[in-house]
Design a protein around this nucleic acid. Structure first.
Lengths: 253, 253
DNA sequence: TGTACATCAGTGAACGCGCGTTCACTGATGTAC
DNA sequence: TGTACATCAGTGAACGCGCGTTCACTGATGTAC
């Protein structure tokens, strides 16, 4: 039994996994610049040159860690969204926000690796783009589906109309990730997206130290505010028409 | 003429400045982990041990750079705010937002040094707290002064009341930085603050690549949205009562 | 089924480099009387 | 004003360490006929 599931291939996969695990351990201890190929091989009891059978260079190992991190976050986010009632858009938004923050707190150094200062001299290859956008697409999907099902409220207060270049950008966004969504709403979704990651980043990188002591309720409130800001209904506020087609018990007030 | 303005002291100050300049150059080229004391002394044509006359360790040099960065950003922000009409709170918010983004783009690596992933193994000493909060206090000041002068609009749409722990945090915030401001508003200011830095960070660290092409108008819109979100008037929308006491020409529509 | 050959994993030595920090020392600049 | 002494800036060698990557090589695992 050779092929890609053969013994050799399985051993190889195991070793690659172990190398990445050791690298993640070093990432946690010393940060990205502290990841050392020699230290990895040392901890695995192999010659320092042996690692080149698995990763052609240090940068390739870094890339693998980055892709893994994005995929891990993307997967957690997608799973959280998938576990929500489809038409409870407010609840989906809130749940996904908590999932992102939860993942960041559970994997602070991997979060720093992808959302922190770019590693100098390292240029992310194309392969990272797909994994990187998974989490973003989940957020965009919630807004888009809410819009399609008519659950989105229009902005409750008047704002000046979009400038011409802002409209152009909004159009691009709508076409790329928010089909059928209003220009203003797409831009607001971007604002909410940056707020969400901005707050998680500030919390993780220590910029809320001395500013906010009990961060969970503040984060919770921010999620609620930004959800409403985008036009999403409050969590639990499900469109009655939809309810009647499904189980109705627990959603009737 | 000895004292602290003596020749020796002046030469010393010059050298300290040159060391920091060289360090900043390396920061731009190689990132924070690439700052090397030996390389600095090499580029200045002095023995590698000489730098210890000026900085007792690499960490102390890092701390100096961090404090300088915070102070530079703080100063730019304060100056921008000071140049605005005091009662045009919307304009102050927008101008300060642009100033922060502008500084970040002019000093991307210093921005990364203070707002990027924490340097592993480095613990920021107390001395950084004051400089770090300058920019924050400017933003808080705008909201607080707007509130005091009655220019803040209440939230235009109903939201659930604050949870008990969120209220507690809001109270702490109000006491520390937003005297006289409503609980909800203080929390919204924090949300706007994290949005502002979140967007600047995303832009600088490459997370808007492929998402937003023309970032300035989107940032401009985000500033406007978040200003209104906090309750600030639109830029240029100045309280008429105040106008009458000052020059009225250009503010009458 | 058995043999010959190709592929792959892993070794160990070496290249060429860099780093932060310490220490005993020299010589110049400032200070006190 | 001039001299004796203390302070400070800067040197150069050394300590002890680490790193990524290459290369010729051995031995085991798989493949083809």
């Amino acid at each position: 039994m050779p092929s890609s599931t053969g013994l050799r291939a399985r051993v190889r996969a195991k070793l690659i996994a172990e190398i990445k695990d050791q690298a993640r351990r070093q990432l946690a201890d010393e940060g990205a610049p502290g990841i050392s190929l020699r230290a990895i091989t040392r901890s695995m009891g192999m010659a320092s040159s042996a690692i080149y059978r698995y990763f052609p260079s240090r940068d390739d190992l870094l890339t693998a860690l980055i892709i893994d991190a994005y995929d891990s976050l993307g997967e957690a986010t997608e799973a959280t969204d998938a576990a929500c009632r489809r038409d409870d858009f407010g609840a989906r938004w809130t749940a996904v926000g908590h999932a992102i923050r939860g993942w960041a707190q559970a994997h602070p150094h991997e979060y720093g690796l992808v959302y922190g200062s770019p590693v100098p001299g390292y240029r992310a290859p194309q392969d990272t783009i797909g994994p990187a956008s998974r989490v973003t697409l989940v957020l965009a999907g919630i807004v888009t589906e809410a819009s399609a099902s008519g659950a989105l409220s229009p902005p409750p207060y008047p704002l000046p109309p979009l400038s011409t270049p802002a409209t152009a950008e909004a159009r691009r966004l709508v076409e790329a990730a928010f089909p059928g969504v209003a220009d203003e709403t797409a831009l607001r979704a971007v604002v909410a997206w940056t707020q969400l990651f901005g707050m998680v980043t500030f919390e993780l990188f220590g910029h809320l130290e001395g500013v906010i002591a009990d961060r969970s309720p503040v984060f919770e409130r921010a999620l609620l505010e930004m959800g409403v800001f985008v036009g999403l209904p409050l969590p639990g506020a499900v469109n009655t028409a939809t309810i009647e087609q499904e189980d109705s018990e627990r959603y009737l007030i």
